[in-house]
Design a protein around this nucleic acid. Structure first.
Lengths: 119, 119
DNA sequence: GGTAGAACGCACTAATTTGTAAGTATCAAT
DNA sequence: ATTGATACTTACAAATTAGTGCGTTCTACC
């Protein structure tokens, strides 16, 4: 985690979204356009442990990308939603997301070539 | 390195630019708008070892983002430049870069808050 | 009493990424 | 002969990230 200054604006963004599950979390929260409970978010993210999800979404809350809504009941009932900052980031991420979709074939081929190189 | 399919287009991109030095390398190659020798690239990237630079640019070459031009002399003389694919990616990255610059204060504050949390 | 539910926290391990140190090849200059 | 230059490679160590297993709280249900 290098301190500012960033060599390029994107470095700071990479720090924000860096973490195995963060992109998917952002994606799920954007797609839903509302709040997601922890358990529902976990279901939507897919193969992620409670621990890892909890850890990474906790960071995202601390960074101001996500808001945690605690219903203060037992069993615990918590929901998460994007903050305005988080939504702003997601719209800035959209062109890249779109580029990635448009180049999916190329990206998939690259990924496969990487795997072949390691086998 | 999960194989395709990607949950979101950006996942593939994150795979492409994931690596401590790759963003800076892209940035330097874009800013220069031409070829950079290994030694010059290393100078411009800053505090990076020959080994790490070599490793990460080798991956970028393999992924098709960067082209390696070997002058076939001794001492070795090699230069690197962006491919069309690399340039395309960089233009797709530009909005993110711009967003990062515009939110630099916020990103810096977040980075600082992270450091404080770890102290 | 025991079990289930939900969203975590803690201790420790495993996996991955990054880095250090030394070495390589060949030519030119001292 | 020795040193310097350049762009790597290899072996191993250090640092960081991701994951496993167990535990917590309190209520409801069997």
């Amino acid at each position: 985690m290098p301190a500012a200054p960033y060599a390029c604006g994107i470095d700071g963004v990479v720090d924000l979204i860096g973490g195995k599950w963060k992109i998917v979390i952002l994606h799920r929260l954007t797609s839903t356009d509302g709040r997601l409970r922890f358990s529902e978010l976990r279901k939507q993210v897919g193969k992620v442990s409670e621990k890892m999800l909890s850890q990474q979404i906790k960071e995202m809350v601390a960074d101001g990308l996500v808001r945690r809504i605690d219903y203060k009941v037992v069993p615990p009932h918590v929901a998460y939603e994007l903050t305005a900052f988080g939504k702003d980031l997601c719209s800035a991420l959209y062109p890249i997301c779109d580029w990635g979709e448009r180049n999916l074939g190329e990206l998939t081929a690259i990924s496969r070539a990487r795997q072949d190189r390691q086998a």
